[in-house]
Design a binder for these strands. Structure first.
Lengths: 146, 146
DNA sequence: AATTATTGTTGACAATTGTAAACTTAAATA
DNA sequence: TATTTAAGTTTACAATTGTCAACAATAATT
């Protein structure tokens, strides 16, 4: 049962994971030190969060002398995709495009990513519908809306 | 104090809001009826959620005879933008582009939205950096990463 | 070996969230 | 008018989350 599921991570847990992903594994003391440069969480708090991440199977540990080294069980990008996709699944279908437009205009994007996006858009363009319908009401009803 | 802030809505509350947004205001009985076509929540549960949305100032009410009509205090699109932007603020900067690429390839997008996206991308393209750096570790450290 | 420092484990507590029953009030109908 | 019914209000309770302190175990130092 209980599969590994990035969407079960709390915001505080996400902050720890980012450190561990970037360091490609870290001991609690490393995490504590780095984390405390961003947030004034006590050692205790950070230890609790690490423990919870282990119990959620987002981290595994292996002992290195007296300490544990924590390793992520999934990749940061996969976790990001899962989390963002999950959020989008619960938003009005009709307005998702606008939300992405909003993101695109405020985010810093690399040339490479921009090119990939353009390729996708060009391909989608020809078969794109004139309008995407709203799915905020139960299907049976599904009237015009918005 | 306590400003209206869409990011404080829980997932269950979001589901109710979508109905109310789409109906442009609704009574509790309407919400209950529509909601129960999607989720087997009891009347009681839905009433609790409505009450919490009012206390979070996401809804206002005005009396209409014996019942209340609930109205959203912010627009669905604004709430979506706030919520999604908030999530993105806590994700690795370097990988946000990839996440959007992932979204773009799986979402249904209207011709119009695609065109707007293309315009934004074309504008950004020329000044885009070759690479966006990772911000998962506290600034002082900020080494290569990833 | 005794003491100190480091790391890990337990237990806690308040706030939020999902979930709902019970109770109250006011309107509609018998 | 007495009774039923539809709304709205109060209370509740378990699980999750943010936050820690206290305690235990183990390694490092004196």
């Amino acid at each position: 049962m209980s599969e590994i599921n990035a969407t079960k991570m709390s915001p505080a847990e996400w902050e720890l994971m980012r450190i561990i992903w970037t360091k490609k594994g870290a001991s609690s003391s490393e995490v504590i030190e780095l984390m405390q440069e961003k947030r004034s969480w006590t050692e205790s708090t950070i230890k609790t969060l690490l423990r919870r991440l282990v119990s959620k199977k987002m981290l595994t540990t292996h002992k290195d002398g007296r300490k544990f080294i924590y390793h992520p069980t999934i990749k940061e990008k996969d976790a990001m995709n899962e989390t963002v996709s999950e959020l989008f699944e619960h938003l009005c279908n009709m307005k998702k495009g606008q939300v992405i437009i909003n993101l695109l205009s405020k985010l810093e994007l690399s040339k490479n990513d921009i090119q990939k996006m353009q390729e996708i858009l060009v391909k989608k363009e020809q078969f794109a519908p004139k309008m995407v319908s709203c799915d905020c009401l139960p299907k049976e009803i599904k009237d015009g809306c918005c």
